[in-house]
């Protein structure tokens, strides 16, 4: 009794995917993973060049006699869209910058931009870039104060027109103002802005504002005193000097 041949087997080999298709899928997968790994591992360095008063290695904007000067070293980790940073700035910001400009302390602003992600905009990055543009024009301190003084609801963000207005308020005009506008439009310091965030990551700072005086991180209790009472600054600086 000869059994009839099984035609289905033939059908399977003809109906299955050709080797080229399987090969194509495998190649696609390898390329996909490769491209993703490449995209994920690029960047993340600290070697970007910043504006005129920035420290190397994404170390932030230094105001005052310098990081090597024999005065109290104050580092502030902040994000231009962080409401509590605004509270701190509006409370003790003027005093701190006055002390720095008088050479009594050195003040370093580590400007982070991580809030862009949670707020779904790019205002932290753009404001940080604009502040560096202002630094190039020598008006970092008044510009920095203007950003926080005009902060809206969290998530509202900032426009380029606001940046230009604050640069004007700080005294820029004519060619200087045009250079500032170009710097804002070109996002000139984007790499350094990212380096500042990367440096904050490496410093293990996950919240803003964080204030470090001579290497000691100011605790929550002292931070809330600083935000509520401008008069608390001297004693807190004294306690950590």
């Amino acid at each position: 009794m000869p059994r009839p041949p099984a035609p289905e087997v033939k059908q399977v080999s003809r109906g299955g995917p050709p080797l080229a298709l399987i090969g194509g899928v495998v190649v696609l997968l390898v390329v996909l993973i490769g491209v993703l790994v490449w995209a994920a591992t690029r960047g993340g360095g600290l070697d970007a060049t910043g504006s005129s008063s920035t420290l190397p290695d994404g170390g932030g904007v230094s105001v005052g006699p310098g990081v090597d000067a024999d005065v109290a070293q104050v580092r502030i980790y902040e994000d231009f869209q962080c409401p509590w940073c605004g509270r701190l700035e509006n409370s003790v910001g003027d005093q701190l910058t006055e002390k720095a400009e008088a050479g009594e302390v050195n003040l370093t602003f580590q400007i982070m931009s991580f809030l862009d992600g949670s707020l779904g905009n790019d205002s932290s990055t753009r404001a940080a870039n604009a502040a560096l543009c202002a630094d190039d024009a020598g008006v970092f301190v008044p510009f920095h104060a203007s950003v926080y003084a005009n902060m809206g609801q969290e998530g509202q963000g900032y426009t380029d027109e606001q940046f230009v207005q604050w640069a004007q308020d700080a005294g820029l005009a004519g060619g200087e103002l045009e250079t500032f506008q170009q710097c804002v439009a070109d996002d000139t310091h984007a790499d350094y802005v990212e380096a500042m965030q990367e440096r904050a990551n490496r410093d293990g700072v996950t919240g803003t504002p964080t204030m470090v005086v001579n290497g000691t991180t100011i605790g929550n209790e002292e931070m809330s005193r600083l935000m509520q009472d401008p008069g608390a600054l001297d004693s807190i600086l004294e306690a950590h000097s």
């Binding site: 993703l36 690029r42 931009s113």
Partner: peptide, 12 residues
């Protein structure tokens, strides 16, 4: 992936 530095920050 377009903001790896931010991604690392959120893990931290």
């Amino acid at each position: 992936i377009v903001d790896i530095t931010g991604s690392v920050q959120s893990v931290l």
